[in-house]
Amino acid sequence: MAFDPYQLERISQVLKARKVPFSAKAMMGGQVVLVDEKMLLGLDQDKNTKENRLMARIGEDAFEEAIKKPGCRLIDFTGRPMKGFVYVYPDGFDLDKDLEYWIDLALAFNPKAKKSKK
């Protein structure tokens, strides 16, 4: 599995400090952090550049502002961007305050997110 365990530890520390119950699970070629059984964030590695990246589920309302942030990119697997999700490359989450920004956006959207079907 291609993801940086250090980044998962950083996310874990922020969520623990905020007393947010979460779990982590292998998914989509990386690691996914779940809150209330819904994807909050994901970690993987860009297959082309080998850069570690964060996938944040932030919802459509936060998208327009978030996409302007350093390191933030569209997720586009099929020719159409995924609504409400963004990739964030290292220059956008290396600093603790930047990582916390993405965690906060994802946490704000999480109550509105739908659970995946089992």
Rank of each mutant, 00 (worst) to 15 (best):
Y6A: 11
L99Y: 08
S12P: 14
R80H: 09
R18Q: 13
K50L: 09
L40Y: 06
W102Y: 14
F22Q: 02
K97I: 13
K19M: 01
R80G: 01
A26F: 04
M28L: 11
Y101G: 07
M28Y: 09
L74W: 05
M55E: 07
I103E: 10
F77Q: 13
L107H: 13
E64P: 00
R73G: 06
A24D: 12
K117S: 14
A26W: 03
D46I: 10
D36Y: 07
M39T: 04
M39G: 08
A62K: 02
V35T: 05
V88F: 01
S12Q: 09
L41D: 02
D104E: 15
F85L: 08
A62Y: 01
Y101K: 14
L15P: 13
E51A: 14
L41C: 00
D46F: 05
R57G: 00
P81G: 12
R10I: 00
R80L: 04
L74R: 15
N48D: 10
G30V: 12
V20M: 04
D91I: 01
N52Y: 08
L107W: 02
Q7N: 10
R73W: 03
E100A: 14
A113R: 15
I67K: 14
K25P: 00
A26G: 05
S116F: 10
L105V: 03
D94C: 04
A66T: 06
L40F: 02
K114R: 13
L95V: 05
K112Q: 13
F93M: 05
Q45G: 11
L107T: 04
N52H: 05
K83D: 09
A24L: 03
K115Y: 06
G92T: 15
P90C: 08
V20F: 06
G42P: 04
L8T: 10
L15Q: 13
F3W: 11
K83M: 07
K25D: 04
K50F: 03
T78L: 00
A62P: 02
D76F: 02
D4P: 03
I58Y: 09
K69F: 04
L95F: 07
K16Q: 12
V32A: 14
K69Q: 10
A113F: 05
V88E: 10
E65F: 01
A17R: 08
P70N: 02
G71S: 14
L95S: 06
A24N: 14
P5S: 15
K115L: 04
K68I: 00
F77I: 00
I11W: 09
F3N: 08
V88G: 15
K97S: 15
E9C: 00
S23I: 05
L40W: 01
F109R: 13
D76E: 14
D98E: 15
K115E: 09
K118G: 14
P5I: 02
R10M: 01
M1A: 09
I11M: 10
E100N: 15
D4L: 02
D46L: 03
M28S: 09
V88D: 11
K117H: 12
K19C: 04
Y89K: 12
K117E: 09
K47M: 09
G79L: 03
G92L: 06
L99R: 06
L107D: 07
G42Y: 15
W102I: 06
W102R: 13
M27P: 07
G29H: 12
L95P: 00
G71H: 10
K83A: 11
V14M: 00
L105N: 07
G59E: 08
